[in-house]
């Protein structure tokens, strides 16, 4: 069945969520007001929502109001006890912090004194090992340079020597 608004506008669509929020926040447009005045279903739905949320609010309010005075007294006692315990902890904590700071400072000072008084044994120069480590290599290089024939050509040199010696022998004969 199609609803009709007072200005004969068709109401085939009910209020959207956005329009609902507008209504609940009291920011509804004239169009929404017009729709609500002509649509019993939306009116009833909005009314149910308001009733239910109102009841929930009253439930909590009623519960809090009905709590007896001893409940609130006990709450105040617990709060005071926790505040006192917190203050005591804070005082204790600040003493512990001061003690820890003092001990740390003493430890740092002691360490500084030890480091300053302790002279490490003299170590050989950092260059020396590198130099001595390079010596065999340098010697090898020098040896290679002194050679008449490079090492890579040594087999060929031997062969050449052998051939030359063979020629000499045959000429001698």
């Amino acid at each position: 069945m199609e609803n009709k608004s007072s200005d004969n506008r068709p109401l085939d669509r009910h209020l959207t969520d956005d329009q609902w929020i507008e209504c609940l926040l009291g920011e509804q447009s004239a169009e929404v007001v017009g729709h609500l005045s002509a649509c019993p279903a939306c009116r009833a739905e909005l009314s149910r929502f308001r009733t239910a949320t109102g009841q929930l609010a009253r439930q909590t309010l009623g519960y809090a109001e009905a709590l007896p005075e001893p409940f609130w007294q006990e709450q105040r006692r617990l709060i005071a006890a926790r505040v006192a315990a917190g203050s005591a902890r804070k005082t204790e904590g600040s003493f512990s912090r001061r003690l820890a700071f003092g001990l740390s400072a003493a430890a740092v000072a002691l360490l500084a004194v030890i480091l300053l008084r302790w002279s490490p044994p003299s170590r050989p120069s950092a260059v020396a090992p590198v130099s001595s480590a390079d010596d065999p290599l340098l010697a090898q290089v020098q040896e290679a340079l002194d050679r008449e024939v490079p090492m890579a050509l040594a087999p060929a040199a031997l062969l050449t020597d052998e051939i030359e010696r063979g020629i000499d022998r045959s000429q001698a004969r």
Partner: peptide, 24 residues
């Protein structure tokens, strides 16, 4: 809570009909 009101109860309109109360 011992001796205290029940939280989930209350808040209903007593004057409404039983059917309306049930729906509410």
């Amino acid at each position: 809570v011992a001796g205290n009101p029940t939280f989930a109860g209350g808040g209903m309109e007593e004057s409404a009909s039983p059917e309306r109360q049930l729906l509410a």
